[in-house]
Simulated scan of single mutants.
Amino acid sequence: MKNAAHLFPYAVTEKAYSYSDYMELMEKVVLENRTTGLKQSEDLNHYTRLNLSRMQRLNKKVTVNEDLKKTIDRFQFPQTWFILTEAWCGDAAQNIPSIVALASLNPQITVKLLLRDENPEIMDAYLTNGGRSIPKLIAVDENFNELFTWGPRPSGAQEMLKAYQANPVKPYMEFAEDIQRWYISDKTESIQKELKELLEGVLIENKF
């Protein structure tokens, strides 16, 4: 089991956001017509506005399925779920509400959100095919032993991205709209299925 204590020192965890604080940050940057992260542009500001609306909608609509509820209930030890994100990321907007909804069902789980560009050491320890793709979920126990990781998107959306990168026949903004339509059609089923598989793997490994 990988120990990630060196990646999450006190200084880092202290500047992490709770989910409510992160939503307040989203609202703040939208009002200021900007986004989070090192890069600033009108396109990223546009995506951030859309993402705030998406997250507000999903915060009200996400329903954790019964099988996943039963799985999360079996965890009886403290753990922290760190999520690397930025306000402009469409995949983060579509997936983080489901992660938070699941974690909120078990009082043993604490969710902390970290901005990717402010935490390059952590991000670079969890690259996806060499890239700083987000969102990235890293779950650790109270001793910072890594339990599982997930991200940056469900496998169905990931396959769509791979196909687009191999043959980018349309502008990226149009492809981004295709991905968002996939999420709407999927109704969070894929991320819930993938998280259930990961959690069951942790239970088996730890003999719970």
Score class of each variant (00 low, 15 high):
A4Q: 07
A5Y: 14
H6N: 14
L7S: 14
F8E: 03
P9D: 06
P9W: 01
P9M: 03
Y10D: 08
A11S: 10
A11M: 06
A11V: 11
T13V: 15
T13F: 01
E14A: 11
K15G: 14
A16H: 03
Y17N: 09
Y17I: 06
Y17H: 05
Y17V: 12
S18A: 04
S18R: 13
S18P: 12
S18Y: 04
Y19W: 08
Y19E: 08
S20V: 12
S20Q: 12
S20H: 09
S20W: 10
D21M: 06
Y22R: 08
Y22H: 11
M23V: 06
E24H: 08
M26K: 00
E27V: 03
E27F: 04
E27Y: 11
E27K: 04
K28L: 15
K28R: 15
L31D: 13
L31S: 12
E32Y: 00
E32C: 13
N33C: 15
N33M: 09
R34F: 13
R34S: 13
T35A: 03
T36H: 04
K39Q: 09
D43W: 00
D43H: 02
L44V: 01
L44I: 01
L44P: 05
Y47R: 00
Y47V: 05
Y47T: 02
Y47S: 00
T48H: 03
R49F: 10
R49K: 11
R49N: 07
L50Y: 07
N51F: 06
N51H: 05
N51L: 10
L52N: 06
S53I: 13
S53D: 04
R54L: 05
R54F: 10
R54G: 10
M55E: 11
R57G: 14
R57W: 14
K60Q: 14
V62C: 10
V62H: 02
T63E: 06
T63S: 12
N65W: 07
E66Y: 12
D67W: 08
L68H: 07
L68R: 01
K70C: 08
K70V: 14
K70G: 03
T71E: 05
I72Y: 03
I72V: 08
I72A: 08
I72M: 03
D73M: 15
D73T: 09
D73R: 02
D73L: 15
D73H: 13
R74C: 08
F75E: 08
Q76R: 15
Q76I: 14
F77A: 07
F77W: 13
P78T: 14
T80K: 02
T80S: 09
W81S: 12
I83W: 02
I83P: 11
I83Y: 00
L84P: 10
L84R: 00
T85G: 14
T85L: 05
A87I: 10
A87S: 15
W88F: 10
W88M: 12
W88N: 09
C89G: 14
C89W: 01
C89Q: 02
G90S: 04
G90L: 04
A92I: 04
A92P: 06
A92Y: 00
A93D: 01
I96A: 02
I96L: 02
P97D: 05
P97M: 02
S98R: 00
